[in-house]
Amino acid sequence: MNARKVDQSALRVNQAFIISLIIIAFVIDSVWLVAFVGGVMLLGTAVPSLAFFKRIYRHGLKPSGLVKPAIIADNPEPHRFAQGFGGVVVTLSVLAFLTGQAFLGWALAGLVVALAALNLFLGFCAGCFLYYQFNKLGVPGFAHSPISR
């Protein structure tokens, strides 16, 4: 039996935090909150054990029973790539803010919210889709094919 597994609940909690915090950042006009979210996403991509929102799930929401685990057979790498890609776009958004291009900054942040919402509510991971396309093309570093029977 394939041992590669992903807890979908951890992914959903991560997406919910990203969406909520960027929306709050927009409402209160806080570039620093956007930067915080971007930092969490990039750090979580580089060192998965330090993914802050997933740690809240693992050490808070899951043990308290507020969120039940939903473990399925899947590769973690595409999801990590998707998060990293999102983190880069959020970073670009922050750079846009710092160079005085607020509209572009919020548009890029909004794109991350839209893609995270697509994943959270419709189950379509755009980053994972890209990863598997790169895998099909044989791009180095995208080594894992989709898990199938």
């Binding site: 057979a73 590769n75 598997y132 029977r149």
Partner: peptide, 11 residues
Amino acid sequence: SDNCSPCMTQA
């Protein structure tokens, strides 16, 4: 499809 990881769980 075979290229869809969650499809195993859905099955």
